[in-house]
Amino acid sequence: MKQLSLDNLRTFVTVVNEAGYAKAGDILGKSQPAISVQIKRLEQQLSTRLFNKQGQRQVVNHEGLKLYQTAQKMLALNDELFSQFQPTLLKGRIRLGIPSEFATTLLPSIIGEFSKLYPEVSLEVTSALSKSLLSKDNENAFDLTMALVNPTTHVEGQVLLDDKLVWVSDKSIPYTNNTISLVVAPDGCVYRTRIINTLKQQTQAWRISYTNADLSGITAAIQQGLGISALARSSVPAELDIIQHKNLPDLGYIKICLITGNTQHPQACAKLAEFIRSKLVK
């Protein structure tokens, strides 16, 4: 099967655009004899002349103009294909809001890889409770916000995952307590609200033994035997175990959403969103 060389076609298009071999050679970094060889090769493959000589100049003819139109399309498709597989040079500052527990478990794997591929993009990260991240006070504070939302709550954003809420405890401390001791985040935490509302519907006794807004603090308290907690399955750190017990009620699901704000750097923001999505949804 015959195949035309894209390199020869690019040379041909450049000659037509620049109206001469010499100028085309300057642009392409090739000698006039090399340009001439490429044009002759095209003419041999197509069995037709592409230029007519007028004085000392080579002027594209009717057949050449037909090839010119098709060659432009072929080169455009070639360039578009390559652009899809080459990292775009992104610049700018992205303000990311992310729940505290995901800042601990998810963010480190994103930051390293993203920063290596896009060193000109600076990330400004704020970790807080989802309620705070989505508050009116922070309406224009973030370019991209990751947040936990109850299944019935409507949010203007993309739902990345309907994640299961699971009970967690320390690996070395078996759960046998009759009274459920809870290690939770402060008021406003979607986990805390779900846990308490669910337990209020049960006959099982419970109490809050420790409160901390940070996942590392919650994890440390659990490891010290102060109690158990609940997290979205995708945010459970390696130090903790998912547990099931007859005294522990089912907590249902939570939506993990990604909301794009009014950003000055939409391309960088979209790329960061793609990274978060790829790490979370497996």
Rank of each mutant, 00 (worst) to 15 (best):
L4D: 04
S5H: 04
L9D: 03
R10I: 06
T11Q: 02
T11R: 02
F12S: 02
V13I: 13
A19E: 13
Y21I: 01
D26N: 13
I27N: 02
L28C: 07
L28F: 13
K30Y: 13
P33V: 05
V37L: 11
K40L: 05
R41I: 00
R41V: 00
E43Y: 11
Q44W: 01
Q44T: 08
Q45V: 01
Q45Y: 05
T48H: 01
L50Q: 02
F51H: 03
G55E: 08
G55W: 08
Q56F: 13
R57H: 13
R57A: 14
Q58N: 14
Q58D: 12
E63W: 11
E63L: 15
L65K: 13
Y68Q: 09
Q69L: 12
M74E: 11
L75C: 10
D79F: 11
L81R: 08
L81H: 06
F82H: 10
S83F: 05
S83L: 11
F85G: 05
P87V: 12
T88R: 14
I94S: 01
P99L: 06
P99S: 04
E101M: 05
T105A: 07
L106F: 13
L107Y: 15
S109N: 15
I111A: 09
K116V: 14
L117S: 12
Y118C: 03
Y118F: 15
P119T: 09
E120F: 13
E120W: 10
L123H: 07
L123C: 07
V125F: 06
V125E: 02
S127F: 08
S127R: 03
K131V: 06
S132C: 03
L133I: 10
L133N: 01
S135N: 06
K136V: 07
K136Q: 09
N138A: 07
E139S: 12
E139Y: 08
F142G: 00
D143L: 05
A147C: 09
V149N: 02
V149W: 00
N150F: 06
N150T: 06
T152A: 15
T153S: 08
H154A: 09
E156M: 06
G157V: 07
K164S: 10
L165P: 00
W167V: 02
W167N: 00
V168E: 01
S169A: 15
K171P: 00
K171E: 13
S172N: 15
S172T: 15
I173K: 08
Y175H: 10
T176A: 11
N178K: 14
I180P: 00
S181D: 13
L182E: 04
V183N: 01
V183I: 10
V184N: 03
C189T: 04
V190A: 10
T193H: 04
I195K: 00
L199Q: 04
L199C: 05
Q201V: 01
Q202V: 04
Q202F: 09
T203P: 00
Q204F: 14
S209V: 08
A213L: 12
D214E: 15
G217H: 06
G217W: 10
I218M: 13
I218F: 06
A221T: 11
Q223R: 15
G227P: 01
L231K: 01
A232D: 00
R233N: 08
V236M: 04
P237V: 08
P237M: 09
D241L: 11
K246Y: 08
N247I: 07
L248N: 00
D250L: 12
L251D: 03
Y253C: 03
I254N: 01
L258I: 12
I259H: 02
T263V: 09
Q267N: 14
Q267Y: 06
E274M: 11
E274N: 14
F275R: 01
V281Q: 11
K282M: 10
